[in-house]
């Protein structure tokens, strides 16, 4: 290795050293300890005893583990694609060259920066079965609105609906992607006699597919870790209809003091997220187009 290369390598290590040290000190340690705790009967205080894989096998017979998994997966399967589609739609609208567009962009982005609890209070009003604006609007359509958060069937859809409040963040990422598409590609479609749909299907979608992929992966990860919204809004009720995985994990750790079991739940969650992310990366070869990448023969 030449002198310059050694210097570059040294600088590289220097630059990443803080991040690596931060990870080792604040994350690797707890991650390792939680893996250990998941094999014990730790109750937070006191000396934990080794139980092997008992915490993991206990999950198989724990109905609330399956309930929390079902709720979280349902939420992810519906909320993520819905959020992706809606934020793309809004981004397309915000990408138009009209007067005052920056005001519209700010308006659509603003909700995503409002804090969780304030949003929760606002949505409690919106979803109130008696005087909420949602049921009022449904009433104009002669639809008798449900009891939303108080109803077992509607509580989870309510939270899915509420999740759309934060589409402003992914809208901005889409917008950046849309603005990076060269206009000559659209002109080529026009020359070929293509219309709006052709432009969207054959230029816009392939060109922003890396952005869709990014939003999809991060969306899946975030939804599997959903906690604050449900903690404030429903506390897992009614009758466990909104018992998210993260909430069940928290309860085991800090309400029941079953830190060993909670650690095992955390590791299973990590494995689920890891598996889903790997699966998405595998399938991405089929539908994500990276400009400048070399296609395999």
């Amino acid at each position: 290795m030449g002198r310059l290369a050694r210097r570059e390598a040294l600088e590289c290590y220097l630059f990443i050293s803080l991040a690596v040290a931060g990870f080792l000190i604040f994350q690797a340690g707890p991650i390792g300890v939680s893996a250990f705790l998941s094999l014990t009967n730790s109750e937070l205080v006191g000396t934990p005893a080794w139980v092997g894989l008992r915490n993991y096998s206990a999950m198989l017979h724990d109905p609330l583990f399956w309930q929390s998994l079902k709720v979280t997966v349902t939420y992810a399967v519906v909320a993520v694609p819905l959020g992706l589609a809606l934020s793309l739609l809004v981004a397309l609208l915000m990408n138009q060259n009209v007067r005052g567009i920056s005001v519209f962009r700010t308006v659509y982005y603003l909700p995503s920066v409002i804090s969780g609890v304030a949003v929760a209070v606002l949505w409690r009003w919106i979803l109130n079965p008696e005087f909420g604006i949602l049921n009022l609007l449904l009433g104009y359509l002669r639809i008798d609105g449900p009891n939303w958060l108080l109803d077992r069937q509607w509580a989870l859809p309510s939270l899915i609906l509420m999740s759309l409040w934060g589409i402003g963040g992914s809208m901005m990422i889409y917008l950046a992607g849309l603005q990076g598409i060269p206009t000559h590609l659209y002109e080529a479609v026009e020359i070929d006699g293509g219309g709006m749909w052709d432009k969207f299907a054959h230029v816009t979608i392939p060109m922003i597919s890396p952005v869709v992929f990014f939003n999809l992966v991060t969306g899946i990860i975030w939804t599997f870790q959903e906690f604050t919204r449900v903690y404030v809004m429903t506390q897992g009720g009614p009758s466990n209809a909104t018992l998210f995985y993260g909430l069940y994990l928290y309860r085991n750790a800090f309400r029941y003091f079953q830190m060993g079991y909670a650690s095992a739940l955390a590791w299973v969650l990590l494995l689920i997220i890891l598996a889903m992310t790997l699966m998405l990366f595998r399938t991405s070869q089929l539908w994500v187009y990276y400009e400048g990448s070399v296609e395999k023969a």
Binding site: L24, I25, P30, G32, V33, S42, G46
Partner: peptide, 14 residues
Amino acid sequence: ALGSTALAACAALP
């Protein structure tokens, strides 16, 4: 030192 800090940071063992 690193191990101790990590253990303290995880705040799981007394």
